[in-house]
Design a protein around this nucleic acid. Structure first.
Lengths: 339, 339
DNA sequence: ACTTGGCACTCGGCGAAGACGAGTGCCAGA
DNA sequence: TCTGGCACTCGTCTTCGCCGAGTGCCAAGT
């Protein structure tokens, strides 16, 4: 059905189309790649590939372009992730070293990724629920007002102001600090509910009410509805492709503005060992059906802190972008593990 | 030189052009606006306006369009900031209420502004240096490692990990907390250097070294090089205009990706009482020469916490956008003052 | 059975030519 | 100072025809 030469033809079509942006014809193909056969033969192979749905032609008298299915085959069978060049490695290193805090790491990574791939880059902040508690600070702002500050092992900081029904003494606050500190320190946030389950009963009766409400706030805002954050960069890169503009990039820009969409994108990967690729119609998000998304999780092998990746035209350099995404994901993972 | 009718003609041209996007001719103008004169007269006025540089025509047989100078006159003399409609007010309120923390406030505001104006919206986080210290927490992560967490009255949280040369006891940390707490609580960050100036001398000798380095980190990262943050939304709105090309929106997108550019934009306004408008070539940033920027500071009258605004085509609804920017700035200002 | 050269055919792109019409500038008269 | 008239300019849109890349198919060769 699909012998080696046909696959070779497909690879040639993808590579040429990706680099030239123009439909590729049988003649040019036979010349540029040393396939050792005539254009006519190539045409036959092309017809076969088209029957199988791997390529199409926009109109009768034009060359062929790969379909989503064609790219999929190319990515799965015909290409391998391209390791980075030495300059690229150096770029990553010099770009990311010297980041002062988590925000800085994320912002630098996303810009780096955009620059490296020349695509739109997306980086998810380390997910709260998968992080562990490094420190929980309870600040007594006013008699009836507490400020909770949670700091995770990946450096995320979340704070909430809490209005209490009743007034609280400084001693009460100290007790609260002690109780939550011992229960939560080092615990992963997903495990927090379990760690705190018996807390109200175990505590002194006097502070049980306030303790319960602090617990409620903690669990609600940090575990039940964890606030996910995402950074974006390189949207200007969208204008490099697709000559016919507003129509193509509009829905993409709109989709990328939706926090939900980005979360979905990133949520689908929590595997920090493999690069994932979604091509065109494979994307579950409406506005991104004309693009491809390359993603990877970052963090420890067990479960990633979060995801990162790039969004670009289906006509992209998959091998290269996959390599770049993988490299940045690994670096960021290491950086945060060491923090 | 420019009598009332000519000004009226200019206003009509600006209004028509803004709403239709098309060069406006003398005939259409005389009909649509009840100027009480014939197209021929309007033509004469137009010729005069053109001589003065307030309008041009793209080519001989086209209508007139305003120049930057024309828009400037329009904004300064011919229009007044448009108050919001009732639905708009309600939208602001329902959009912003229920924000749980500063991040939330900023992100909601920027999206709100983008939606309201249908332009690209920019919101600067409250500038650190102009904020006051609500709480400074010093966490003893490890014997030689401190975590500084600064919380400002506007709700910004900044943290830095600090590696010390020497080991520190828990008691030392308590002393540190006390010292910095009393000195800084409630102080504005701009005043921090003064508030801390004599600190090393006044403190117990034992902790002077560590105290000095904590001070150094504080002052350097929080006062000398305060980390400014900016949120952006509505870039997809750029595609609504400029039927023409990527050529128009490309440089704009690129400029908007530069943190520096946005800071410059926002830095130029710290007046929370007036809306500022930069039109086309008036912009100091290269990539934004084809756009207009409407900005305003938010915060207390004395000095704003930060700035916010929108970026759009010079052909924008100035009166409306100015009203919207002003309204959002006021709301955000109140919201943060009450926090 | 596969490959190859030949050949007729398709169809989008591009440039020329022309019709159209919006809008102008100017002028003479009120 | 305003107005109507009029000739003129010039960009836009449409049509038309040519060009050529590229195809599909076929018959012949290996």
């Amino acid at each position: 059905m699909l012998d080696d030469r046909k696959l070779e033809v497909l690879r040639a079509i993808v590579e040429d189309f990706v680099s030239t942006t123009e439909p590729v014809g049988s003649k040019a193909l036979a010349e540029r790649h040393s396939l050792g056969v005539s254009p006519a033969t190539v045409r036959n192979d092309m017809a076969a590939l088209e029957d199988e749905g791997f390529i199409t032609h926009p109109h009768t008298s034009a060359g062929r372009i790969p379909t989503d299915k064609g790219y999929r085959l190319f990515v799965d069978k015909l290409s391998s992730v391209k390791p980075l060049s030495a300059p690229e490695r150096r770029a990553i290193q010099s770009f990311l070293e010297g980041a002062v805090d988590l925000d800085d790491v994320v912002r630098r990574s996303v810009r780096l990724l955009a620059q490296l791939t020349r695509q739109v880059a997306v980086v998810q902040y380390p997910s709260l629920s998968r992080s562990a508690v490094r420190h929980l600070e309870i600040v007594h702002l006013a008699p009836t007002r507490l400020l909770l500050v949670l700091i995770t092992d990946t450096g995320r900081v979340e704070q909430r102001v809490l209005e209490l029904g009743a007034s609280l003494s400084e001693d009460d606050v100290v007790v609260l600090r002690g109780v939550f500190g011992t229960r939560l320190h080092g615990a992963r946030l997903v495990d927090a509910p379990a760690a705190l389950a018996d807390l109200p009963d175990a505590a002194p009766v006097a502070i049980q009410p306030v303790l319960t409400s602090v617990m409620a706030v903690l669990l609600e805002t940090l575990v039940d509805q964890p606030e996910e954050r995402i950074a974006l960069a390189g949207t200007a890169n969208l204008t490099r492709h697709s000559v016919d503009f507003p129509l193509t990039i509009r829905p993409v820009l709109e989709a990328l503005e939706e926090q939900v969409v980005l979360l979905k994108l990133m949520g689908e990967v929590n595997d920090p060992t493999t690069v994932h690729v979604k091509i065109g119609e494979e994307n579950s998000v409406e506005g991104l059906r004309s693009t491809s998304v390359v993603t990877m999780g970052y963090g420890p092998d067990g479960g990633a802190y979060g995801g990162l990746g790039v969004v670009g035209p289906t006509r992209m350099d998959y091998a290269g972008n996959m390599g770049q995404v993988r490299a940045v994901a690994r670096y960021v993972g290491e950086l945060l593990a060491g923090a």
